[in-house]
Amino acid sequence: MAKTFTQEFTKGLWEEIAPFRLVLGLCPVLGVTTTVENGIGMGLATTFVLVFSNLLVASLRNIIPSKVRIACYIIIIATFVVVTELLMQAFAYPLFLKLGVFIPLIVVNCIVLGRAEAFASKNSISFSIADGLGIGIGFTLSLAALGAVRELIGANNLTLWTTPTSVIGLQEVFGANFEPFAFMVQAPGAFVCLGLMLCGMNLLGSK
């Protein structure tokens, strides 16, 4: 158990990267990744919830009775999800419109509850924050990667951020003559794309 703060942080970025290694939390992974922007937004929202729920669960780990721990974790997680939802509506409304129902669904995201139960309830506060940050950023990167592939092929664009007046990102990456493969931005395309990426990850890992 001689793990360091950095190790707890970095394991979430590759070794235990949630959607690809553990194939967990697939609802938002498949649902929102039609653009890179949506993926990053969803990932950051989840990271916020993950860090704060880990922090609270770790600091209350000696107070919460083990018989009602899951109920307590859900209250903590749900609170931070509503906080995220309200803040997003107040400060990033266009993003909220795109993510829609997927924000409240973070409550039942098994990654968040899984980290609370499997990690934060047994480790110190600082390690739990490192774990939450690592897993959260790993999740964000996975979503952004999947979003990039789907948006590139499905819409021929790469949007990083949309402000009310302009779009930061690339338009028509493959040139104006490329006919977007719209299948990729629809739900079945998400499964195909995720499957191919998992395949690639496993190939890399098997060497």
């Binding site: 307590c72 209250i75 609170t79 906080v83 309200l86 509506q89 107040a90 409304y93």
Partner: peptide
């Protein structure tokens, strides 16, 4: 008793925090 107290306090705290935040952000939203 501990179970009931912990759950109650946690819920009350969560409810208070969220209703406060809701009021604070309502106009902006």
């Amino acid at each position: 008793v501990t179970m009931v107290v912990v759950l109650t306090v946690l819920s009350a705290f969560s409810g208070g925090l969220l209703s406060g935040l809701r009021d604070a952000t309502a106009a902006r939203i």
